[in-house]
Design a binder for these strands. Structure first.
Length: 452
RNA sequence: GGCUCUAUCGUCUAAUGGUUAGGACACGGCCUUCUCAAGGCUGGAAUCCGGGUUCGACUCCCGGUAGAGUCACCA
């Protein structure tokens, strides 16, 4: 039992937008730190100045905050810590753990612009290293295969492994929770730890998030950044929920977890060993579960946010429309899609259509349908416009509709109101449009048939 | 290729020596129904292969096979 406080870290290199795999790593680090009453450090590993961009740093900070993943310490920038690395580098050289190595650039090196003639290499003791992974158990490597690897271009230009080890040591990191692709980096880093006299943190290597082809999920697989999922209209809580369950489960049949639930119930031993394929459909289902729990007023705001063209509708209509939309979408982007597909056009203006479409399955004649419409107009006219809602409208025409065959009336009625083959039912449409507009559209349809 | 990791329905997973191998997503069918959804009911679908250990292996051991990760003066 260690008495020291748990300190985890999330060390992205700002060379791209925050992607799902890294977000999940951050999530596990955060959850683990929180449930241990510990802290998480944020550190930008930007020693590669060519590839690191401020834009990506900002994206990472924003997405983390959007997801609700908070860091307690930092952020740190490795590019600002050169002096610290320099100190360790010099000591390692003095102690004989590293040395200046004369390099003779090969043809390939020259092609890649490596013309440096001196670098700092680690003096490999060539031994076997065994470390315990919290998820996988003992893992042994023979470091001989690593040769005398380069740890810095010069004392002022440290490379990844050196910077990581020094930082983890200086920042008091107790647990390194990272992706499985970090396993092969571990022996190198342990070697450096031993050289600088740092203790060994505990390791936990998470299974990778895989694409459909079972390879590591990456940019070439399409949308993989948190930013893109945010823009598609996913909820942060749903993304968190899905990501957490990809590779971890509580052993119960519970599928929905808030961040708080996760902090409470997470057990690092419950993490799986095998990589997991990222499945958009399950994510969508998860998102849908969350979307449904949003209060109506909030949903209505969301509706106009994702379909600004609806803003001209009055509040009452929007409020009635909201549940109709939310019962069929999984992500907010579908609202925009529906709007662009014209699914709400009937609310904004009277539809236009060819009169023939009013004949249900072609089983009735123009004369019959116009008569059905005339009768329904007559029936609806007697309904008070104060109580013109879906229940009353249904009551008013139901008996008649049954007598002529429901579809014979309901189909042309719905089509006359919406101008679409797929839409809410005619009763809801009537309520949405109001008595005046409903009668106007039905009359128009009837006249269209008579003229024919 | 070397090293390392992994292996239960199509996918995410439960079952840590004894279950008709469970759940979720997805898919099929039925009900409801003027359409599209939603909802209810329901169905099909898995322990990679071969040896052990054991009264008994999804589970433990060994060997295959397959997949993945990693092998930079990137991180």
């Amino acid at each position: 039992m260690s008495l020291s406080k748990v300190i985890t870290r999330f060390p992205p290199s700002p060379t791209g937008f925050l992607h799902l795999g890294r977000a999940r790593t951050a999530l596990f680090n955060y959850i683990f730190a929180k449930q241990s009453k510990g802290e998480m450090v944020l550190r930008f590993e930007d020693t590669d100045s060519d590839r690191s961009k401020k834009e990506f740093e900002n994206d990472m900070t924003e997405c983390l905050s959007w997801l609700g993943i908070k860091y307690d310490v930092g952020p740190f920038w490795q590019s600002k810590r050169t002096d610290i690395y320099k100190k360790y580098l010099k000591k390692m050289i003095d102690d004989g753990f590293a040395y200046l190595s004369k390099e003779d650039p090969t043809e390939a090196d020259r092609a890649e612009g490596r013309t440096r003639t001196e670098v700092i290499r680690f003096k490999n003791p060539n031994k076997k290293i065994t470390f315990t992974d919290l998820i996988r158990g003992d893992i042994t490597f023979d470091t001989t295969d690593l040769k005398d690897f380069v740890i810095a271009r010069s004392v002022n230009e440290p490379l990844y492994h050196l910077a990581v080890v020094v930082d983890d040591y200086e920042m008091g990191i107790t647990h390194i929770i990272r992706g499985e692709d970090g396993i092969s980096n571990t022996p190198r880093q342990i070697l450096i730890q031993e050289a600088i006299g740092a203790g060994r943190p505990l390791y936990a290597h998470l299974p990778l998030i895989l694409a459909k082809d079972k390879s590591k999920l990456s940019g070439r697989h399409g949308a993989v950044s948190v930013k893109e999922y945010r823009e598609k209209g996913y909820l942060p809580d749903a993304l968190i929920n899905y990501l957490a369950l990809l590779g971890w489960n509580p052993g119960t049949e519970q599928e929905i977890f808030s961040l708080g639930d996760l902090i409470r119930e997470f057990k690092i031993e419950g993490i799986n060993k095998a990589g997991a394929i990222f499945n958009d459909e399950k994510l969508q289902w998860t998102n849908k579960e969350y979307i449904r729990k949003i209060p109506l007023v909030e949903q209505t705001k969301l509706l106009t946010k994702w379909a600004p063209g609806l803003i001209s509708l009055n509040t009452e209509t929007l409020t009635k429309l909201t549940p109709l939309v939310f019962e069929r979408i999984s992500i907010f982007g579908e609202i925009t899609q529906m709007f662009n597909d014209g699914e709400f056009d009937y609310l904004l203006s009277a539809p236009t259509y060819a009169p023939e479409v009013l004949l249900w399955k072609g089983k009735s004649t123009t004369e019959e349908v116009s008569a059905y419409l005339s009768k329904s107009i007559e029936l609806l006219s007697s309904v008070s416009d104060q109580t013109f809602d879906r229940v009353v409208v249904k009551e008013a025409i139901w008996t008649y509709a049954e007598s002529v065959g429901r579809g014979q009336l309901l189909w042309p009625m719905r089509y006359a109101l919406s101008g679409r083959e797929k839409s809410p039912d005619p009763f809801i449409l009537s309520e949405l449009l109001g008595k005046t507009e409903t009668l106007k559209r039905l009359t128009h349809a009837r006249d269209l048939l008579l003229k024919k």
